[in-house]
Write a protein that binds this DNA or RNA. Structure first.
Length: 287
DNA sequence: CTAGGATCCTGTCAGC
DNA sequence: TGCTGACAGGATCCTA
């Protein structure tokens, strides 16, 4: 899915459109995509926990939305603004609902479409008081901005043999990174993604934590990462990948740092992984 | 307890 | 053109 910066972009954008608006009805086009009872009521807050979006209503109920790999949220307001964010595809611009639309939430101000090609994502309703007790939410670790270097380093020791990339993708260890930002943070910190987590020095751990903050800060500031079709809340396109991504999906291109090696793509922790073989050597010691 | 792989599902793309 | 396998911005479940 959209990783933390994309969900934050969605949260900020949706807030402008649906805060204080009323949900009137919900149409579930795919049973698998909606858990619990559909809700009605006025939207009083939009929150985010890691990659999960929470919509709180005035009747003490909430919707939790998980986009996973291919979820999208598209909002059509009655005065014709379209907010579209999440997994990039031309669906953002297509007429709705379409083949991938799983849930349609009608508000007094417009319509919110939940699209999800692979059906991994979902919307779940629950009492607001239960949100923080939800099994998924409870497992989430701290985000990079609030985790200390010592905490992070200590966690790495507990997964000493795992490749560092697998470790930082684990939301119960550190929360918010996905496949793009994991690769980008490791490149920024000049750490090979296959490095056993336990062999990072304290200095490397600190640098990696700071790099994770930086790449995600940059992305949030630019409206989320993008493929060609990523659209920001206001209809313009996020441009993180174009402007800032150094390695993600740039295999075969010259490394932007050393200008010597080409970016390579391999498979680590079951995920496509991009890195510079010169800048990110296995076993390289911290500078 | 950790570690690694399979799995959920649909669509697209490269290579016959 | 049609088929096949690999892969995809995530997380969980199962096994060792």
């Amino acid at each position: 899915m959209p990783e933390l910066p994309e969900v934050e972009t969605i949260r900020r954008g949706l807030e402008k459109f649906i805060l204080n608006k009323k949900i009137i009805r919900t149409d579930i086009l795919c049973e698998k995509s909606f858990h619990g009872t559909p809700l009605t009521g006025k939207v009083v807050a939009l929150r985010r926990f890691g990659k999960a979006l929470i919509i709180d209503l005035d009747n003490h109920n909430s919707l939790m939305i998980h986009l996973r790999m291919t979820g999208q949220l598209i909002y059509d307001s009655k005065d014709s603004d379209r907010f579209a964010a999440g997994h990039p595809s031309e669906n953002f611009l297509a007429s709705l609902p379409n083949k991938q639309t799983r849930v349609v939430i009608s508000l007094d101000s417009g319509t919110l479409y939940f699209n999800d090609q692979r059906k991994f994502g979902f919307i779940k309703s629950m009492p607001t008081s239960e949100v923080e007790n939800d099994t998924f939410i409870k497992k989430l670790a701290k985000e990079p901005w609030v985790m200390t270097e010592d905490e992070f380093y200590e966690k790495l020791q507990r997964h000493a043999k795992s490749p560092i990339k697998a470790v930082i993708l684990d939301q119960s260890i550190i929360c918010g990174l996905g496949n793009i930002y994991a690769d980008e943070a490791l490149f920024a910190a000049q750490i090979h993604p296959a490095t056993p987590a336990g062999s990072l020095t304290k200095g490397q751990a600190k640098l990696l934590l700071e790099s994770a903050r930086e790449v995600m800060d940059k992305s949030i500031a630019s409206g989320g990462s993008t493929m060609a079709t990523y659209v920001k809340p206001d209809g313009t396109r996020g441009d993180y990948l174009e402007k800032f991504a150094q390695v993600f999906r740039r295999n075969g291109e010259l490394c932007p740092r050393c200008q010597k090696a080409k970016i390579e793509k391999t498979r680590i922790a079951g995920r496509g992984t991009h890195f510079c073989p010169t800048c990110q050597k296995l076993g390289r010691t911290a500078k």
